[in-house]
Design a protein around this nucleic acid. Structure first.
Length: 331
DNA sequence: CTAACCATGACGGACTCT
DNA sequence: AGAGTCCGTCATGGTTAG
């Protein structure tokens, strides 16, 4: 899962030719979870002009895994390595965790960051088991503890003590500025961050745009969330003249607005629901601003994701079916 | 008082790759 | 055939806003 190319890598970059229909303008960039049935990705691909998905695990870019598929019509030659290299291992990201990290925990990177937080009962259980065990613990105990650490993405914060990541640590690993989501409830921060882009990964893909738009770009941002795409563009130094952002969550809208007001000089127009962005409205936007240069977004994965035990209904699920709004709007 | 909000804990299985 | 992974949901009880 190495995508079409990797930064600073000996991996031979892939060459591809886009289907005629997929060639821009505008450029488009679509994202979703990679680990959903192949037939789902076949459907997505079919709706997006048959463009082959780029499957990339962010563990090749940063310190945490994030297996995602990206369908886009961006050039893939001459992607530039990031000016600011993100940490690629747990210890590079959090040197202070060395202190309590047992030698038998061989993890160098973290698993996928999600929205959920494990119960404190679990960390208590691990501490209890390890306190009662020999030092070092038997293989059996090690395997037991490691399975839980991997499953819940736990880190070592004290003697025999593990803990879940703090929201600001997730912000850091995902490539957001510190305190990007601060000011909303803790639970909400976990939710918003768990649902977001890995910014460095998106930055790498979008880096080909940097020299193409010296006067800035107009962006149509669908399912914006906390603005991973916008942060990536900003980091590339690409001026956003106008961003029309579609995002239903009040909290996420507030987070984006506050970041925008602090860092941007362009105009941000926020719309709550993709379904209210009718064809007529799109036409009038295009007329008034002179067209969009980039359409970017990842549609809801709720009904595709492996974590969902209740309604893993695929693309036709209640939330994930909003995907179909993406090709409609793009067309 | 009521409704909305918030934190917490409990809860398997489908899927891919080797 | 086996191992490892996963942008999650729901009910409950407490808290806060109006």
């Amino acid at each position: 899962m190495v995508g079409f190319s990797l930064p600073n890598s000996m991996v031979q970059p892939v060459k591809r030719s886009l289907p005629e229909q997929a060639i821009g303008p505008p450029f488009f960039y679509y994202e979703n979870v990679a680990q959903t049935p192949k037939r789902t990705w076949d459907t997505i691909k079919g709706e997006l002009y048959g463009v082959e998905p780029e499957f990339l695990d962010s563990k090749y870019i940063c310190a945490t895994a994030r297996k995602r598929g990206y369908i886009h019509n961006l050039p893939i030659e001459n992607r530039s390595s990031l000016c600011l290299e993100p940490p690629k291992t747990i210890f590079e990201a959090f040197p202070h965790y060395r202190k309590w990290w047992p030698s038998w925990d061989s993890r160098k990177q973290l698993n996928c960051l999600t929205t959920c937080v494990p119960s404190s009962r679990l960390t208590e259980l691990i501490e209890f088991v390890l306190s009662a065990a020999e030092n070092p613990p038997s293989l059996r105990v090690q395997n037991y503890v490691m399975a839980l650490c991997r499953q819940y993405n736990l880190v070592w914060v004290g003697k025999n003590r593990v803990a879940h990541l703090e929201p600001h640590e997730m912000e850091y690993l995902l490539g957001f500025p510190r305190n990007h989501t601060r000011g909303v409830t803790r639970t909400q921060r976990y939710k918003s961050l768990g649902n977001s882009f890995q910014v460095d990964t998106v930055t790498y893909h979008l880096s080909v745009l940097r020299d193409m738009f010296p006067d800035g770009i107009n962006v149509l941002s669908l399912f914006t969330g906390i603005g991973g795409g916008e942060v990536a563009l900003h980091r590339l130094g690409i001026h956003m003249r106008i961003v029309v952002s579609v995002e239903i969550s009040k909290v996420n809208k507030r987070i984006l607005r506050s970041w925008w007001n602090q860092t941007q000089t362009g105009e941000l127009i926020q719309i709550p629901d993709v379904r209210t962005l009718t064809d007529d409205k799109i036409r009038s936007f295009i007329e008034s601003i002179g067209g969009f240069d980039l359409v970017i977004g990842g549609s809801p994965c709720n009904n595709l994701a492996g974590k969902n035990r209740f309604h893993r209904d695929g693309l036709e699920g209640e939330h994930s079916s909003l995907f179909y709004q993406y090709p409609r709007i793009l067309n």
